[in-house]
Design a protein around this nucleic acid. Structure first.
Lengths: 200, 200
DNA sequence: CGTAACTTGCTGAACAGCAAGCAAGCCACC
DNA sequence: GGTGGCTTGCTTGCTGTTCAGCAAGTTACG
């Protein structure tokens, strides 16, 4: 309920009703509303942390090419986020309400390490380590954005995200874009294009 | 205030105080709180619509190569969104609170047309028109996501977005990624990579 | 075994606080 | 005088929190 309606719009009586108990019971167990919210956040993060841990070893297991590994990882992450709408919504709300940065998000550093390894394998030296971080942020953005804006921005630009097929189409596009992205890291763009940035 | 704190967390007395009037005045002028919110939304959208209109003709003006035009457009859109945090936050909140889709967002169809034109110039036939829509959604995601998560996801993956220089670095990365994306549309990925999607 | 003391899970009423909305009223200005 | 812009008091409803209390269960003890 916090994920779907937000903190303010969720009353403890509603929570109690949804749990089949009375108004006072949530307060009885959790002390206050914000403590309940904190507990929800923690439980949700713990679940994600666990899922990341269990999926991590499988990621870099088979001796595929770096590109294929990356494609699989991005594809997996795409599905991972799609399967956890509440997690995404909670973090989104936290971000909007300006929470003082969550250390709980450092499960993402796992992805950072993985991508750094892939970058190394792709032959990028350390001077390009920022590129890897930027790319990782882009991967997350691409796997994340359409989940929030499936009914706002996506239909406005002509992308429907209603059934599994639509989602699959989106997944393929994202993976392809990322793969082209690392290809571009190996072989930087024609400078004639990148120079056209300065126009405003 | 609606953009920064959300609808529920913003009281009409705060609005009045911020406007230098008393607590009843917002209600006097706008009827109710939700009508005020609607007016805010409309005004914000109108401003964006106007900015899009004025920037649109400039976009396809000079006879540059399609790639350079696209690079400039993406770069411009990146700055465009970065300059309108309230607009982004409002839409983000709308998306989170499940508003029944805003027809106001169809100013994005302008981008759709523009991208379709570029796609045509790049030699993509109509059977790939979905690719253009997908790419446009990705462009928006890439220009948008870091603005919301500058203090949550971005630092967690090692991307700082504190000063203009950080933002410029991000802009370059996004433009490069998109340019590689259209390059990938022209010349589809090696099928060996795209076939590695099915693993779960 | 039986009973008393005590804990636990939960209730529902009371409380104070704040919200939006309404209506009457104030007041400068035409 | 009256009219429009704005304020202020009031009402109503909902909120989170507290608290006395209750029923069931558990333990301590004779």
């Amino acid at each position: 309920m916090f994920a779907q309606k937000g903190f303010d719009a969720t009353s403890l009586s509603e929570v109690g009703a949804a749990a089949g108990v009375s108004r006072g019971t949530p307060g009885y167990f959790f002390g206050s509303k914000s403590e309940l919210y904190q507990a929800v956040l923690e439980r949700c993060f713990a679940e994600v942390r666990e899922a990341v841990r269990s999926g991590r070893e499988r990621a870099l297991a088979s001796g595929q090419t770096p590109g294929a590994i990356l494609a699989g990882a991005v594809s997996d992450y795409f599905g991972f986020l799609a399967a956890r709408p509440n997690f995404i919504r909670l973090i989104e709300r936290e971000a909007l309400n300006g929470s003082p940065q969550h250390e709980e998000l450092d499960h993402l550093s796992a992805g950072q390490e993985a991508l750094a390894a892939i970058s190394a394998e792709l032959g990028l030296d350390d001077s390009r380590s920022d590129d890897a971080a930027q790319l990782l942020l882009s991967i997350i953005a691409l796997c994340w954005f359409h989940l929030i804006h499936a009914r706002t921005v996506a239909p406005a630009v002509g992308v429907t995200l209603e059934d599994a097929e639509d989602l699959e189409r989106r997944r393929r596009h994202v993976v392809g874009l990322v793969l082209n992205g690392v290809a571009g890291l190996e072989r930087p763009l024609a400078s004639t294009l990148t120079q056209s940035l300065g126009n405003d």
